[in-house]
Amino acid sequence: MIEIDRLEKSFGTNRVLDGISLTVRQGQVVCIIGPSGSGKSTLLRCVNGLESYEGGEVRVSGRRVDRRSPEIRTIRREVTMVFQRFNLFAHRTALENVTEGPIYAAGESRASAEAHARELLAQVGLTGKESAYPSQLSGGQQQRVAIARALAMRPKAVLFDEPTSALDPELVGEVLTVMRDLARQGMTMAVVTHEMGFAREVADHVVFMDRGRVVEEGRPAELLTAPREPRTQDFLRRVLRPLE
């Protein structure tokens, strides 16, 4: 579904992605973990075509992702994105946030887009909030609107860029629950996260990234409990037991 092949990307002299390769298969949930600055977010942004890249290639369903080609809009509709800071449209209601893409990117009729949006808002537990503006919603509710917005395009995969990092701790659970349910329905997902509990329970595959490369990858039970690489061990120790 998503193939990343020896991808290279620099910001100035800073090499953010250093020949990284990664595959996300249909129906798979891949969690990407690693220290900040390791290139995790940039990697996702390259898949959605929000960043250009210098070397290697990203393919979605076999098609090369190139943010300058007209085909990028088709690819973006197939692989949508949920952002750390929600990035909702502040001037539109929850319902309008969800219908905006289907109507104005995919050319769906307003009636069918609205019906679908109501279903999706119900799915993320926001029935009754359709006409609320983002500023009237909590962070957790806003992020769930953003998830509904990403699902409204009927994507083949959804990319999550640290979806709970900007949330108050007590609101993290409601977002993770929605994501877990989505994974159980068979959605293909790539999730950059610091939530190790989520990775352990939901992921099929966990990737540990550092300095623009994959250091180690494997099944969550193996990688998160018995990592082989010293850098992975070090990172997990800091995340799981910060006081020691």
Binding site: N48, L50, I72, R73, T74, I75, R76, R77, T80, M81, F83, R85, F86, N87, L88, F89, A90, H91, E100, G101, Y104, A105, A106, A146, R149, A150, M153
Partner: peptide, 27 residues
């Protein structure tokens, strides 16, 4: 205008003119 909302519109595959008329200008 919040750059994040512009990126979100792009990430949904909205054409540039629509990003401008639906997201940038109203805000």
């Amino acid at each position: 205008v919040d750059a994040g909302s512009i990126e979100a519109a792009e990430s949904l595959g909205m054409p540039r003119a629509r990003v401008l008329s639906r997201v940038v200008l109203p805000q």
